[in-house]
């Protein structure tokens, strides 16, 4: 599902080069729940953005869902994201002027679905995350955990194969974090999604199938998570 070969990403900062990613090769199978872990500044977000088609590598090959992203124009990348990838970020996930349903419906505006179909699909997604009865609440009327669940509903509403999440639990208390982690796990379990999550959260390790450690832009050997091994 996700295949990165010798991917590097350099940033120019003044006169010096920052190597955010150094010849990273990453492989994630379809239907797996993968975690990217590592210290702050190790390149996790950069890697996530590249495999989700939000950013382009300085060199290397990125093939996701059967597409070589290097060959796509900006507009084609946007189209790729809207059909294949769902996003969950740490904060500011939701558009404050839209209610939960409106937020979840957003990606569907890019499709040819009718208004009724959009609404129905958004409500289904909200049901999956357990917030069907909160559909007409504005983001500021929802708790942090609920907001993240709405973000997850939005990420799955157009039924993409891949869900990427950048520190989705970073801003949450323990109980809410656990809820979000189980929800992501469910997406993989019940819907066969491929999920890639950046996390600091040691608890996260218990929910994922595999962990990829990054350090200073270099990918250390991947190892399967203990709990995942027990589970599968």
């Amino acid at each position: 599902m996700i295949d990165l070969v010798e991917v590097s990403r350099e940033y120019q900062r003044g006169t010096d080069h920052v190597k955010a990613l150094d010849r990273v090769s990453l492989h994630v199978e379809r239907g797996r729940f993968a975690a990217l872990m590592g210290p702050s500044g190790s390149g996790k977000s950069t890697l996530l953005h590249i495999l989700a088609g939000l950013d382009r590598p300085s060199s290397g090959r990125v093939v996701v869902a059967g597409r070589d992203l290097g060959g796509l124009s900006d507009d084609q990348l946007a189209k790729f994201r809207s059909t294949h990838v769902g996003f969950v970020f740490q904060f500011f996930n939701l558009i404050p002027v839209l209610d939960a349903r409106g937020n979840v419906e957003l990606p569907l505006l890019l499709t040819s679905l009718s208004k009724a179909q959009r609404r129905e699909q958004a409500e289904t997604a909200l049901r999956v995350v357990g917030l069907a009865e909160r559909a007409s609440h504005a983001p500021n009327q929802l708790s942090g955990g609920e907001q993240q669940r709405v973000a997850i509903a939005r990420a799955i509403v157009s039924d993409p194969e891949i869900i990427v999440a950048d520190e989705p639990t970073g801003d949450l208390d323990a109980a809410n974090a656990v809820e979000i982690l189980s929800l992501l796990r469910e997406l993989r379990q019940d819907f066969g999604k491929t999920v890639v999550m950046v996390t600091h959260d040691q608890r996260g390790a218990e929910y994922v199938d595999e962990i990829h450690q990054l350090d200073k832009g270099v990918l250390l050997d991947a190892h399967s998570s203990a709990s995942a091994e027990g589970a599968s």
């Binding site: 946007a78 189209k79 809207s82 558009i95 990606p107």
Partner: peptide, 16 residues
């Protein structure tokens, strides 16, 4: 800006 970034991530292209 942050909301616009979210919209772009979701797949809104520049023209839209």
């Amino acid at each position: 800006f942050q909301e616009l970034a979210i919209l772009k991530a979701i797949g809104f292209n520049r023209r839209l």
